[in-house]
Simulated assay, not measured.
Amino acid sequence: MQGLLEELEKRMQQLLRAMTQARLQGDDTQVAALSEDLKRTQAYWASLALPDTEATQTQPTAAPAAASRPAAAARPARSALPLREQVCQALTLLTVPTAPKVLSQVHEAFFAQPLNTARLTSLRRDEERSYRASSTNRTYYICPALTCDLLAPARALLALSNWPLEQRLVGPITHRVHFLTAALRIADAAEQRTDDDMASGPLRRLLEHYSGNIPGYPVTPGHVNLEALRAAAKDELAVHVQDDANTRAEAAERARTKLDDADQIFGHTLHDANRARRTA
């Protein structure tokens, strides 16, 4: 849970900075929207960090934009949040670039409903167009992960633009590192849920998928041991994490040298590179 609290605290700091910038620009509409986002995020932080009695007094009914834990007794049938904020919720929980199908499963398990994955391709394109038109309007953008070798968009992996560049890169063993990292994050988030939630179809299937694909986890049909899941994931993660971190750090250095700000977020394509050589 500590990791999730830290992510929420970072999100609150980002929102405060964005509100200050919007005020200086005289954009009252943006200030109001960011203020509501900040209130929801603060309330969710309180629901995790404070005793139940205090969190109940401070928590509004709306879910925060970056992450939310809906009440088990009253899950809404449909989220009022835009799709990009639903994607942000799931990515903030996982902290790693993730495929749309898994994002949808995570959102269903923790935020009441699956994502409309058919719209995610157009959403990603809209995000890039918006950034290139005016890169200061939003606190984050939905963007692709980037490959370490070509610094190009990785196929079907979404990330958040406000993550460090190293966090958005994928190398030869990054997919496994991400799988294990996601397993740890899901186990932490699941620990905050009720027994009824744990027994629910979406969350149970998600936990079974991750626990069943990690060597060393003692599989017990119909039951997921969160502590054992964490231990098995950490053991395997320790084998891969340093080599993967070195690969991504080297790729990030190349990206900062060769790519402009937009391409460091959305990547470049071979078509763009060939066009640049012809122009030169």
Score class of each variant (00 low, 15 high):
residue 225 N to A: 14
residue 234 K to L: 14
residue 249 A to N: 04
residue 232 A to W: 00
residue 258 K to P: 01
residue 238 A to G: 08
residue 227 E to K: 12
residue 240 H to W: 14
residue 264 Q to Y: 07
residue 265 I to A: 04
residue 233 A to Q: 03
residue 263 D to H: 14
residue 244 D to F: 04
residue 242 Q to F: 12
residue 232 A to Y: 00
residue 262 A to W: 01
residue 218 P to D: 04
residue 249 A to D: 05
residue 251 A to S: 07
residue 234 K to D: 12
residue 235 D to K: 13
residue 232 A to F: 01
residue 229 L to H: 07
residue 243 D to H: 14
residue 239 V to L: 14
residue 250 E to F: 10
residue 243 D to T: 10
residue 228 A to V: 08
residue 217 Y to V: 05
residue 240 H to N: 08
residue 226 L to I: 04
residue 217 Y to T: 04
residue 231 A to D: 09
residue 239 V to Y: 11
residue 233 A to H: 08
residue 263 D to V: 00
residue 262 A to N: 07
residue 266 F to I: 01
residue 254 R to L: 07
residue 256 R to P: 03
residue 236 E to M: 05
residue 225 N to V: 06
residue 262 A to L: 03
residue 227 E to F: 08
residue 242 Q to N: 11
residue 251 A to N: 04
residue 242 Q to K: 12
residue 243 D to Y: 13
residue 220 T to S: 15
residue 242 Q to C: 09
residue 260 D to Y: 02
residue 267 G to A: 06
residue 236 E to P: 07
residue 244 D to S: 08
residue 249 A to H: 08
residue 224 V to Q: 00
residue 231 A to L: 09
residue 232 A to P: 04
residue 237 L to Y: 06
residue 241 V to T: 10
residue 246 N to G: 08
residue 250 E to K: 12
residue 238 A to K: 09
residue 253 E to G: 04
residue 231 A to R: 12
residue 223 H to R: 14
residue 243 D to C: 10
residue 262 A to F: 02
residue 255 A to L: 03
residue 224 V to Y: 02
residue 268 H to L: 14
residue 237 L to M: 09
residue 252 A to K: 02
residue 255 A to R: 01
residue 227 E to Q: 14
residue 262 A to V: 03
residue 221 P to G: 06
residue 217 Y to F: 13
residue 237 L to H: 07
residue 245 A to V: 06
residue 219 V to P: 03
residue 257 T to C: 10
residue 218 P to I: 01
residue 260 D to G: 13
residue 230 R to T: 05
residue 233 A to C: 10
residue 266 F to G: 03
residue 223 H to P: 06
residue 241 V to C: 08
residue 239 V to E: 12
residue 226 L to Y: 00
residue 237 L to P: 00
residue 220 T to F: 11
residue 218 P to C: 04
residue 246 N to S: 13
residue 218 P to M: 01
residue 251 A to I: 01
residue 245 A to P: 11
residue 264 Q to C: 13
residue 220 T to N: 14
residue 246 N to E: 15
residue 263 D to M: 11
residue 267 G to S: 07
residue 244 D to P: 01
residue 225 N to K: 08
residue 266 F to Y: 10
residue 220 T to H: 13
residue 235 D to M: 11
residue 263 D to I: 00
residue 265 I to P: 01
residue 240 H to T: 05
residue 247 T to C: 12
residue 227 E to C: 10
residue 255 A to M: 01
residue 242 Q to V: 15
residue 238 A to E: 11
residue 261 D to Q: 14
residue 246 N to V: 09
residue 249 A to W: 00
residue 244 D to N: 09
residue 238 A to D: 12
residue 247 T to H: 12
residue 218 P to Q: 02
residue 220 T to A: 15
residue 232 A to K: 01
residue 227 E to A: 13
residue 247 T to I: 13
residue 245 A to T: 10
residue 219 V to K: 11
residue 236 E to R: 07
residue 250 E to T: 13
residue 228 A to K: 12
residue 268 H to T: 15
residue 252 A to L: 07
